[in-house]
Design a protein around this nucleic acid. Structure first.
Lengths: 191, 191
DNA sequence: CGCCAAGACGGAGGCTCCTCCGTTTCACCA
DNA sequence: TGGTGAAACGGAGGAGCCTCCGTCTTGGCG
């Protein structure tokens, strides 16, 4: 899964340092203001050139994703615990709520991620794979117990979630988000 | 619905003419190439200044929407005919396919429309309202006959569709689109 | 027919994005 | 320890977006 490639060259120390600086500066910038801060500002705050920023993070989305990777990872890996504590269909809904809550606290992030997907320029990044893996785990358990359909592709669920969050986080209607997540669960329950 | 405001001033002739020119130029540009053509190019082709383009169509999405309004309207208004010919749940699926087919032929457009709908920045409501109205009609008939759930907000379905198209038109996987539309139908059928 | 105000025109300018490439630095090896 | 080339650095520059405002056109009225 995260097996380190032994043949990979260790990154140069200055590269690693600058990468950290950029992440820190970006985190501050995104926290303080919107995520619309000019990238050049972030680069300057980090004490590097704009070219360096772009080499480390080819797109704005890549930077945003890296900034929130740790947090999002925590959400994704919470699935097993939920599965252990609840039946699959309940765990699914709980996990969706948890995911929604995370997304809700990162509105700025969503604005940017949206832009990335629209242009389709960055094909499904690492983050999305983590999310899909979490969903896959829940679906598999649900299929085993018969609580969830066995014929649903986890990627398809991820795609639906994308739409749910993209449609709702802007208007900011929590009720609608809840209803849509209910619909998603309904769609993956056997009939 | 489309009641013309009688107090509205008739637009100046040059304004009307330029608006038409812009639409024509935009249609040509979008047909020939992607919808990423610079707006300045469209303005030049239309023989007007960039300022004029922006006055008529404040955002790129507004322009794209105007270009395809007629076609999309035809899709939206096809719902009653489908309802007359099929039971509601079949009509819904058929209409979704029709909608998907339209979207598929306008990939360039979708890239931009997504941006507009999602960002909610312009709230370009006209098109979306038409779509929602079509869905509402189908849902209402389905609720009457009991073939579809009565407790689903048409807006919610629109939101899900948005996600479906958003996630699939980029990758370009027709199979997935079909599966997702199936899921949407499943979600709105009574259990 | 000539005047005039409402409103349309258009393009320069400020801003950000992202690329490109000459220069500089690091890490490994002899 | 010194040499070397792979890799990183940085910022100038080209391109598109959108705004702003001075100029020009239109069409109604006297």
């Amino acid at each position: 899964m995260s097996a380190p490639d032994p043949s990979a060259r260790r990154p140069r120390s200055d590269a690693a340092r600058n990468r950290e600086r950029l992440l820190t500066a970006a985190r501050n910038a995104f926290t303080a203001a919107d995520d619309t801060v000019p990238l050049e500002t972030i680069a300057r705050d980090a004490g590097v050139g704009i070219g360096t920023l772009y080499r480390h993070f080819p797109t704005r989305e890549a930077l945003v994703e890296a900034v929130y990777a740790a947090e999002l990872d925590a959400v994704a890996t919470s699935a097993p615990a939920l599965l252990a504590a609840h039946p699959p269909e309940v765990a699914l809904r709980a996990w969706l709520d948890r995911y929604a809550a995370f997304v809700d606290t990162k509105r700025g992030m969503i604005t940017t991620l949206r832009a990335g997907w629209q242009s389709g320029r960055t094909a499904t990044p690492a983050t999305r794979e983590r999310v899909t893996a979490a969903i896959a785990a829940i679906l598999a358990e649900g299929a085993r117990t018969g609580a969830l359909r066995a014929d649903v592709d986890p990627e398809d669920v991820t795609a639906m979630l994308l739409g749910v969050f993209l449609s709702t986080t802007v208007g900011g209607d929590p009720e609608r988000t809840g209803r849509l997540l209910d619909l998603v669960v309904d769609a993956v329950r056997p009939r």
